[in-house]
Design a protein around this nucleic acid. Sequence first.
DNA 1: GTGAAAGCGCTAACAC
DNA 2: GTGTTAGCGCTTTCAC
Lengths: 334, 334
Amino acid sequence: MSVSRPTIHDVASRAGMSKSLVSLALSGSPKVSDKSRAKIERAAEELGYRRNAAARSLAVRRSQTIGILVLDLHNPVFAEIVDVVQRTVRERGFSTMLVSGGNDPAREQTELETLLQFQVEGLILISHRLPEHTLARIATEVPCVTVTRDDVAVAGMDRVSNDDVAGAGLAVDHLVELGHKKIVHLSGGANPVSQARAAGYESAMRAHGLESQISIVPGGLTDAAGFAAATTALSQQPTALFVANDFAAMGAIAAIEEAGLHVPDDVSVIGYDGITLGALRNINLTSIAQPLVALGEKAAERLLQRIESPLAPAQHDKMRSRLLTRGTTGPARS
Amino acid sequence: MSVSRPTIHDVASRAGMSKSLVSLALSGSPKVSDKSRAKIERAAEELGYRRNAAARSLAVRRSQTIGILVLDLHNPVFAEIVDVVQRTVRERGFSTMLVSGGNDPAREQTELETLLQFQVEGLILISHRLPEHTLARIATEVPCVTVTRDDVAVAGMDRVSNDDVAGAGLAVDHLVELGHKKIVHLSGGANPVSQARAAGYESAMRAHGLESQISIVPGGLTDAAGFAAATTALSQQPTALFVANDFAAMGAIAAIEEAGLHVPDDVSVIGYDGITLGALRNINLTSIAQPLVALGEKAAERLLQRIESPLAPAQHDKMRSRLLTRGTTGPARS
DNA sequence: GTGAAAGCGCTAACAC
DNA sequence: GTGTTAGCGCTTTCAC
């Protein structure tokens, strides 16, 4: 634990040059002779010198850092998006500060505050819970894009999300194609994402001339909740279930099997999100896959653009999800 | 997008006082009169003032930030630990910078470098892949604790991990208690964690007077790999499988069922890690649960201690894992 | 209690 | 090409 790290000044005196030359050399300026550069690099190496990001950020008045706020680290959907965003902005020379709201709106606010104190140059909000006025305020302070939540539009803030309405339509179309008519939707209820999916379901059902039947999954889109909701829904004798997300869909499958029925022979099940986990052979869940990589890349790209031109009009990208046919859907029994 | 944020100087002149007074007031010093404090707070509020963390960190020569490096964001085990660590250090006034190595050793190194440039005051390395000499170097620069990897001991670096050897023993004991004798271990192979689990398995088998049979899961501890390994292992006609982690265990279950056998009636399966997912009713995996919360809290605590006294001797905490009896293990058939 | 002044480590004009 | 200088926004003596 060196009591104090070497500074640019130490490097300069060891190399026998001035601070500014060292600074130039270290940032790869062409106006440094090769000889000096070599000397400086050697001195830096020997001293174990490392740039102080705080000092640098203060001097250049840019942090070269963007902040990422994620609703909760445990959701594999978010993890994937974060990963892509980090990779993408890094290529453009930005560091990232990643914080998790821990599924707690209050913590989300304080974490956000921390990010801003660090003078992040941009913000990526992944499935946050921030109220509209907070969002609006932040957007005036710093370039900002929300991912996975597109229900609230505030000036100057880009949104990128998957098209939940179209995605839900894909699910219904798939089931209808398999001959299903009695398709019940297990919805996540009041949150914006679930509502969009429910809306997509309804409009697709209508388009096919079928009757919608929505059953709310109480208590969040977990497998336990999906289990409970499916148990109830089974009394309506559906031949297929379209469930608002994959975790709940897994719970629904368990409920169906526990009721002595088979998936997909008796009841087909399709989820939403396309989590990797669904590919587990003993689950093999048919699902609507979100374009996670595309989502992350687009979000990063939009943010980078907005950092360059902060006043550009807000964009809204809706990326297409796609059907992932696996083993839990099959022909309707007649 | 305000072109430039208000500084302490702006607050001072709006409140009609000096910069230093504002600084004192903002950090809650008692040597500021209530009247002045109120004025200052109002001015700050009105201006939308926010401390510049870089400037502060430069002035106080402390970043009040710790860095967390995680092997990969997707593993739910790591996500949980990260969450706990973040919560814990936050309570002690530290911010966190979280970076993911993205399962790529090279990226791990550069991310680490970034962390250090930000002058983090401590580092939590969760299941990293850093070579020993890098580890040793870092440990001399900054307080450091590794979580989930305890195979390499370097001076001044604390380690906290679950006791894989004991945990594997728990799994074997459980199976033996159920009457199993022919217990095959599906191991992750060359990585340190897998080796500890294999060692624990072997010693427990020996203690019970049983013969060890280890089958390596090639290609990482994924469900697909587990499936393949189990398929092979079945030719040995085991009555139980102890698999090195939960994902691989799920693959193993699929293999068993695909072979026309039943879990747990024909073959019992027990995994390791106790991931939340294993609780899914249609998986219901018996497992050895790592004490994730305890791991995270202990790691944070150790780091905080070490930040206070950097020269203290390195600690090594092995936390106990516990048996999570669910549905995939049952009595051995006779 | 309050203000002036120095300095944290770095960069960016600007001279030479 | 290289050195000098003046800050970036903040904290922290030290006088008053």
